[in-house]
């Protein structure tokens, strides 16, 4: 049971990541390979503020979300003017650079050692130290994230985003500032990635920079691709599938190292096969 709850918590965290990247990549068509960096910023902000200053988890999470948004805004200002593959490379680059910062800024992040002893969230004297309670909290966060994503996609703002994905030149002819729309959604996506990071840090009580590499960004990207571009529900389901399936490998009896690599093989094959046979993903409404 404890194990199932553990898997469920992870699936929820990746669900938040999937939904938020879907807003950027699925709804707006920006292929971003830097989501793990914002995820990491959220995690580190919470770790730093909780361990170093004993600030309340929820305030620290908010601070992490604001930090990630700020960084995303700066990155967006630079890269969102770039076209297609240059934008993709730019985002890969920002992930690499932010990872280098987490890895090398020893005085704040403790470098490769990571930060341990992160407490569980606490509110009005109640501490979410049991995993069951924590799961409920994360589920609430998933629900809020999903609701906000639905609100965004159903609004007129969301319709402009969809139009940008289809043809950004036409959208700009109609007088919309494509760049500003992209910047807003990119910043919002980063804030929710940081939310997921805050939960990860507090759940595992330990984080290290190696959880926030480009490879992790690619994993989040495969969640969105599997779920289907433009489907928040698809992203949720895909997060569940991609978190649960590799666990089966554990029971087959592979060593942890081999199992980790088998997971990579699995994710890679999913990407290739989807592109070959079902580019729109499980529930996608759009072709890519």
């Amino acid at each position: 049971m404890e194990y199932l709850i553990h898997i469920a918590v992870l699936a929820c965290i990746y669900g938040i990541l999937g939904i938020s990247l879907n807003l950027v990549m699925g709804e707006t068509g920006l292929i971003s390979v830097t989501h793990a960096a914002f995820y990491g910023l959220g995690a580190y902000a919470v770790a730093f503020l909780l361990v170093g200053f004993g600030i309340n988890f929820f305030l620290a999470t908010l601070a992490g979300m604001i930090l990630a948004s700020g960084v995303a805004f700066a990155i967006g200002v630079v890269f969102l003017r770039l076209k297609e593959v240059y934008y993709v490379l730019g985002t890969v680059g920002s992930n690499v650079i932010l990872f280098s910062v987490l890895l090398n800024w020893n005085s704040v992040t403790r470098g490769p050692l990571g930060i341990g002893g992160i407490p569980r969230p606490e509110i009005f004297g109640f501490r979410f130290s049991e995993n069951e309670a924590f799961l409920l909290l994360v589920l609430a966060a998933v629900a809020i994230t999903y609701a906000i994503s639905v609100l965004i996609t159903r609004s007129s703002f969301g319709r402009v985003l969809n139009a940008i994905r289809e043809d950004e030149d036409v959208v700009s002819v109609f007088g919309y500032s494509v760049y500003h729309y992209k910047l807003v959604i990119f910043t919002i996506g980063a804030a929710f990635a940081a939310l997921a990071g805050a939960f990860l840090a507090s759940y595992l009580t330990y984080i290290s920079p190696f959880s926030f590499t480009v490879v992790e960004s690619i994993f989040i990207l495969s969640i969105v691709v599997l779920g289907g571009l433009g489907s928040g529900r698809g992203a949720l389901i895909a997060a569940g599938i991609l978190v649960i399936t590799p666990e089966a490998l554990r029971f087959v009896g592979f060593t942890p190292d081999i199992a980790a690599q088998m997971r990579q093989v699995l994710y890679g094959l999913i990407l290739i096969l989807l592109m070959l046979y079902r580019p729109q993903g499980l529930l996608g409404r759009f072709r890519i």
């Binding site: 690619i218 690599q261 990579q264 890679g268 990407l271 290739i272 592109m275 580019p279």
Partner: peptide, 18 residues
């Protein structure tokens, strides 16, 4: 589209490395 090819080639990279 180029995006599809890009994502498929990403899959190729991950699978072969793993």
């Amino acid at each position: 589209t180029h995006t599809v090819l890009l994502i498929a080639s990403l899959g190729v990279l991950i699978v072969i490395q793993a």
